[in-house]
Simulated assay, not measured.
Amino acid sequence: MEILLAILVGLLYASGIYMILRRSFVKLIIGIILLGNGANLLIFLLGRITKGLPPIIPENSKVFLEAYADPVPQALILTAIVISFGLQSFAIILVKRAHKVVRTDDLDEMNATDEDS
C-alpha cells in the first residue's frame, strides 16, 4: 500500500510541476492544487500507515509497546488543507480579476500587455 501511495505522490508532483510550467493561468492554479495534494499525501505517508491504538501511554509503562496512530502528521495535513484552501480561493479570484482586466489567460500575453502600457 505504501508503494502505491509513493507512486501516487510522484505522479501528483510530476503533473503539478508540468501544469505549473504551462502558459495558462488556470493551469498554473491546477498545478499548485496538485502539488499541495501531493505534499499532503507525502506528509500522511511519512507518518506511517498503521491501524493502531490512540497514542496514550498507560500508567504502568513509560514507552509505547504496541503500534499506535501518530496524530502529528494528521494535524499537519489538516492545517495544510486549510492554508491551501485559502491560497486557492485567493488565486481563483486573482485569475478572475486578471482575466476581466486583460482579457486573456496566457501569461506571456499578460507580460507583453504590461510592457506596451
Rank of each mutant, 00 (worst) to 15 (best):
A6Y: 08
P55V: 11
V95I: 07
S117A: 11
V63N: 10
L34C: 11
A69H: 04
L46M: 14
L94H: 05
A69K: 05
I83S: 06
L4Y: 11
A80W: 09
F90I: 06
R97N: 02
V9A: 09
R22W: 13
A80I: 07
N60F: 06
L42M: 15
K27M: 11
H99I: 03
L53E: 06
I81C: 05
G52L: 08
M1R: 13
S117I: 10
G38D: 06
L5K: 14
Q74P: 04
F85V: 02
P73L: 02
G52H: 07
F90D: 02
E2L: 08
S61A: 15
G52A: 10
P55W: 06
Y68K: 12
G31N: 03
F44E: 00
Y13I: 01
L8F: 02
I33M: 15
R22Y: 14
T50I: 12
I56F: 12
V95F: 07
L4K: 13
L87C: 04
Q88Y: 09
I7N: 04
I30H: 09
L34N: 07
I83Y: 05
G52K: 07
M19E: 00
T104I: 08
F90R: 06
A112Q: 13
G47N: 15
I83G: 06
L28Q: 07
D114P: 00
L65R: 07
E59C: 05
Y68W: 14
T113D: 12
L78R: 03
E2P: 02
Q74E: 10
N111G: 04
G86W: 04
G38Y: 08
D108M: 04
L41K: 08
T50V: 14
F25Y: 03
N37A: 09
G16M: 03
N37L: 13
G16E: 02
M110V: 02
L76E: 04
P54G: 15
L12G: 03
N60S: 14
G47D: 14
I17W: 03
I32V: 12
A14P: 00
A14H: 00
E109H: 08
L11N: 01
V102W: 13
L35Q: 12
K27S: 12
Q88E: 08
S24R: 05
I49S: 11
I33L: 15
V9I: 14
P55E: 14
